[in-house]
């Protein structure tokens, strides 16, 4: 702040202090991308037959509309009946996108929410209560963070069949140490602040101090951490799905790529089989990244008050 006012020639690149920080361009663009995905899926639920996303409900290997595909047996041309084409097991790719994209986001959301919920509780307890509680939680989170979660998840899911929620909850079992450490650190610095001391003197309960006084101040950090967790969880889920694990019947974007690899979709030139799911995943990840960057700027004013 001082450096900005020290030189009147410098100007704030994106916002001045009176702007609404929530109008951050990163955040807006990111939200826009995610909303597009969700909106597309939402509208698709009502305008397209979702059952076409299941095995055998469409002809095999139809190219997208306007595209032709040639094999030793002849040439097939895409039609509006299956605008994004079909895969090698007779799933309509548009229906796969409509069904798969929100499921992919849902895995991320559930896993991040569960991980964050647990992380918030433990982080506050460790930071605020200190002592042995802090020691136990700190050691537990430090230990868990060193476990190669993807390997453990592969082993568990290859033995136990899981549905979408089960997969998300399993991933969340490894998604809590990050938020726990983050919140613990914030709480440790915050609990020495005046308003916390005042609340304590006023006789507020520990619960009230933690969740009514301190928590609101951590919302931007929590939101940024939540989005980061969502990215990590989706990445873990995609990793498992590409290995053929996770929900078997209703398609997800990762599972679509798995089948494409198993049935040589790449070599057969069936680019729409793996290309569209990959494209949607890119959009999701870019969207979440931008949201994360935006929230980061909101929670850390120094980042948004860059100078040219």
């Amino acid at each position: 702040m001082a450096t900005i006012s020290a030189n009147p020639k410098r100007k704030i690149s994106r916002f001045n202090r009176f702007d609404n920080p929530w109008l951050n361009p990163f955040l807006i663009t990111g939200v826009f991308l995610i909303v597009i995905i969700l909106l597309g899926a939402f509208i698709g639920q009502f305008t397209w037959d979702s059952d076409l996303a299941l095995v055998g409900n469409s002809p095999l290997k139809q190219p997208p509309v306007g595209v032709s595909h040639t094999t030793l047996r002849g040439t097939s041309v895409g039609t509006w009946e299956h605008p994004l084409g079909t895969d090698g097991d007779g799933r309509d790719m548009l229906a796969v996108m409509i069904v798969g994209a929100p499921r992919t986001l849902a895995i991320g959301f559930i896993a991040a929410a569960a991980g964050m919920g647990f992380g918030i509780l433990l982080g506050f307890m460790a930071g605020f209560m200190g002592g042995r509680v802090d020691d136990v939680i700190r050691i537990a989170s430090d230990t868990t963070i060193t476990i190669p979660s993807i390997l453990v998840l592969i082993v568990i899911q290859s033995v136990i069949p899981v549905n979408l929620v089960g997969m998300a909850l399993l991933i969340s079992a490894f998604a809590w140490p990050g938020p726990t450490r983050l919140i613990r650190g914030q709480v440790l610095s915050m609990k020495e602040s005046g308003y916390v001391k005042m609340a304590r003197i006023s006789g507020a309960s520990t619960f009230d101090i933690m969740f009514k006084e301190m928590m609101p101040n951590l919302i931007p950090y929590l939101a940024a951490s939540f989005i980061g967790n969502m990215q990590g969880s989706i990445l873990a889920a995609i990793g498992l799905e590409v290995l053929g694990l996770g929900p078997q019947r209703v398609p997800t974007l990762g599972k679509s790529i798995y089948w494409s690899v198993q049935l040589s979709g790449l070599s057969q030139g069936l680019w729409w089989w793996w290309g569209f799911p990959a494209l949607i995943l890119v959009v999701i990840f870019v969207g979440l990244l931008l949201i994360n960057l935006g929230l980061d700027e909101i929670s850390n004013p120094r980042l948004r008050q860059k100078v040219e």
Binding site: T71, L72, G88, Q262, L263, S264, L266
Partner: peptide
Amino acid sequence: AEENKVQLASQGELDSIMDVTLGGFEAMVA
């Protein structure tokens, strides 16, 4: 995965392939 088989066979790095789909076979022959 069949993708691996097709890639290897396409490059002449497999002499005998155990079983592939019709599409995979067409891709390797191409």
